[in-house]
């Protein structure tokens, strides 16, 4: 089954297709459209249910998985800390473990393009047509970081991005944001947007994904997290809501001090 990107291929099993992913990407096995997979079911009576069944998050189980090389990781850390720098308001991106988050995401389903259509033919496309690369997000990161490193090396006498002064780092990032740097097969503007989005995801997502360490980003903005019942607060207009933030796997108050 090497024809997954060949539009003229004959019929092949859906399960095999899911296992392959549209461009032969790994890691999409046994999941159908992002949900609990399994075989076609004949359902009557009630929707299926069994003891202990829960489509609980599993990405966090991949803690420790890594995609980035040391050099790539240094770029991600330095760049993320310019997007969310340290100050007394709250943690910087790296203080919130955002690089860990990004590394795990790139090693996981997101990085593999689990929810990206990556088959050809490929064309540059218009901005309004969105992502048109043949690369998975992880490969896109790899290509982008390498191209940025080349760019920075040329402009700054062989230095790495992480070694630049903060103002120079900001200048590079602004140039990427404006699409003013040629990154070859990667669109600078699109990469910057993806990176900024991923940094904010790592900063504000549930801590079980590896970022938002100690829920400090939630504390900084005043978001109580996975709190389900606000009934008593609905009519208390303008009052602070002093609930301790809680993640899907709890908070310190759940455990022995």
């Amino acid at each position: 089954m090497t024809h997954a990107d060949d539009p003229a291929r004959g019929m092949i099993g859906r399960r095999q297709l899911f296992a392959l992913g549209a461009a032969g990407a790994l890691g999409a096995a046994a999941r159908h459209d992002g949900m609990v997979g399994g075989t076609s079911e004949r359902i009557a009576g009630t929707l299926p249910w069994a003891d202990g069944q829960a489509d609980a998050p599993d990405d966090a189980i991949r803690a420790g998985t890594a995609f980035l090389t040391t050099a790539e990781r240094a770029f991600v850390t330095a760049a993320a800390d310019r997007l969310i720098p340290p100050d007394p308001t709250g943690p910087s991106a790296s203080q919130a473990d955002v690089p860990d988050f990004i590394d795990r995401q790139l090693a996981g389903g997101f990085g593999h393009g689990e929810h990206y259509y990556l088959a050809g033919p490929w064309a540059k496309g218009l901005p309004s047509q969105g992502y048109q690369s043949r690369l998975t997000p992880a490969a896109y990161y790899r290509a982008a970081i390498a191209a940025v490193a080349d760019h920075v090396g040329r402009e700054h006498g062989g230095k790495a991005f992480a070694d630049l002064a903060p103002t120079d780092q900001d200048a590079v990032l602004k140039a990427l944001e404006a699409g003013k740097v040629d990154l070859g097969q990667v669109d600078a503007k699109q990469f910057f947007a993806m990176f900024l989005q991923n940094v904010k995801e790592g900063y504000f997502s549930d801590p079980l994904y590896g970022g938002n360490r100690d829920m400090a980003a939630w504390k900084m903005i005043g978001f109580p997290g996975a709190h389900y019942d606000y009934s008593e607060w609905v009519t208390r207009h303008g009052e602070p809501v002093p609930l301790a933030p809680v993640g899907l796997t709890g908070r310190p108050g759940w455990r022995k001090a």
Partner: peptide
């Protein structure tokens, strides 16, 4: 138990 997961 796991619905409030913006990322996912």
């Amino acid at each position: 138990t796991f619905d409030q997961d913006e990322l996912r």
